[in-house]
Design a protein around this nucleic acid. Structure first.
Lengths: 329, 329
DNA sequence: TTGAAAGCGTTACCAG
DNA sequence: CTGGTAACGCTTTCAA
């Protein structure tokens, strides 16, 4: 038998509407009464019935996060940050690792106040999402709210950065699958930037066909056997770059002496790689903060379309160097 | 304006209790009426109000999972499995990455039917959890339901396996922090097993002081400089073992020619390491299945204490070999 | 086979 | 300041 406000009312000798008010810290209750009620409630181990509350007043103070691909480390870092940011705003977060469609349905049942979507693909399922939501990725051509992490500018400053260090033969290792919009965007961004500087942008692009470190490893092996001899490599993500490093090491190529490496994903873990990797991207704290603030705004104002473009920066560690005079490769 | 069963009733020209029955596929309503109502409901875009349903009938068909440490890869694999197993049983899963205490509170509000706990520490917070739950880890001295992954037997068969391959100088690289019961259990298990075979079990234990690959890397470096020259190393987890491999490689020690390595955590990703690693532990599919089946049983039967001990196995890949006659180290 | 009505535990409003 | 009461949307008897 769970105990309700009526039980409390009985014991306190007041009406249950008064109990309700007291519990909600309403100013309409005399402090003495309020305290008395609060004490009784605690002592009886009262726990409010969420369903009942929800039934009468909307707003659950919960936001849901959809995240079908657990294993990506860059994401888990952002998700952790988002969770903190949400707590800071006195909301709670629940997470679903199912498809967008299933997740939305579940979140609706729970009447979450808003949704954050972390799935790169299948965003079509969002078309008829009646709840406020934001997504993460690329904003181009989108009719719904997205926090654009600005791959184009990221790759732009990356290429220019390498260029300023004297690099002219720059390779890219990443996934170009047409199904994954985010990866594709990075790929195109690099090609654009390279092209603008009159650098090669075709034979130097190496397709990983996947996002695990191993995919980056294999692609780099291929790169090393190709005729394109880069002085610098751009890795498309944390995991991919881990593979790049390993492949390089296996061939006894020293970073940054023999080759420079820079990676997308501006996360602290880059410092823990075998070689602390210089990285580029919007700092995750900023991504997290922007996502929840935007969502909260949408929840309150009912604004519906919203594209916010963030500013990426380069985080210099030790993996990039000036091209040496006597380049051998 | 959301639409309710009353709206449907109005349109269908029946009472709303009939609509309720039809929606719940009750046999008490004539098929024709039922179909008509169902059609109208779909056409009006009806969505049941979960809170209202919850208010009247208990049972949410949702189970919550508490998992405060996102980054551990072995865990994310199990969590994914668990999610699938839960779906198979036509439940849904939501995930919280907050502390046990906060998570329980939130899950209570959502009236989940049960909870799976994945946090190694702070299990005290479970003492007064009124909802059905199971935990994962070590069952000794526990007064609540736990799926025991049997570290003792894991380490037992590991040590015996290495012994049978001729190894006599076996090192262990892992975390011994007294705060993390699971790690401590592995540590003690190894020492026991080693002791039983009369092998050294003190100077060959290397403390990582953390669970990231880097911690394993550093500890292995230390190991290599110590006077204990092992022919085999046991790594305490996937991440730790990744660090071991890297440290070994840096010193040009070849696995398994120069040294054998075996790792705890029986997960498929072991095959993707630089050297496909022989590993030990209960297969994750089995862990996942056991956890949700047990929880479901508890939910139905209201059993409350329950310790289930699983059977670990060794998954041979290529990282362990017979000790060679001319051992050099 | 259908309908009426009584809750489920809260909140919010209106009287007192 | 406090109490009474009407919702909130649904399930579930109990009668018809």
């Amino acid at each position: 038998m769970t105990i309700t406000i009526k039980d409390i009312a009985l014991k306190a000798g007041v009406s249950y509407s008064t109990v309700s008010k007291a519990l909600n810290d309403s100013p309409l209750v005399k402090p003495i009464t309020k305290n008395k009620i609060l004490n009784i409630a605690k002592e009886m181990g009262y726990e409010p019935n969420f369903a009942a509350q929800r039934l009468v007043s909307k707003q659950s103070k919960v936001i849901g996060l959809i995240w079908p691909t657990l294993e990506r480390i860059a994401h888990s870092t952002v998700v952790t940050q988002i969770n903190e940011e949400i707590s800071k705003n006195s909301y709670s977060m629940i997470l679903s690792i199912n498809s967008i469609k299933d997740s939305i349905e579940m979140f609706k049942r729970f009447q979450v106040d808003g949704i954050i979507v972390f799935d790169e693909k299948n965003q079509d399922a969002l078309k008829d999402c009646s709840l406020p939501f934001v997504t993460y990725g690329v904003g181009k051509d989108k009719s719904f709210p997205v926090i654009d992490v600005n791959y184009q500018e990221s790759m732009d400053i990356t290429v220019k950065y390498l260029y300023s260090l004297g690099h002219r033969r720059i390779a890219y290792v990443g996934d170009f699958s047409p199904v994954d919009e985010r990866q594709l965007e990075k790929y195109n961004a690099v090609r654009n930037s390279l092209n603008e500087l009159g650098l090669p942008n075709t034979e130097n692009m190496f397709h990983t066909g996947g996002l695990d470190w191993y995919d980056g490893y294999v692609a780099t092996k291929r790169l090393l056997q190709s005729s394109f001899k880069p002085t610098a490599i751009i890795g498309s993500s944390y995991d991919i770059s881990a593979g790049i490093i390993r492949a390089l090491r296996e061939s006894n190529i020293i970073i940054p002496k023999d080759i420079s490496v820079i990676s997308y994903d501006n996360i602290p873990q880059m410092a823990n790689l075998e070689i602390p990797l210089t990285s580029v991207g919007v700092p995750i704290e900023e991504i997290a903060q922007c996502m929840v603030q935007t969502l909260l705004t949408i929840i309150q104002n009912k604004e519906t379309t919203f594209i916010k473009t963030l500013k990426p920066i380069i985080n210099e560690r030790v993996s990039c160097a000036h091209v040496s005079i006597e380049v051998k490769r």
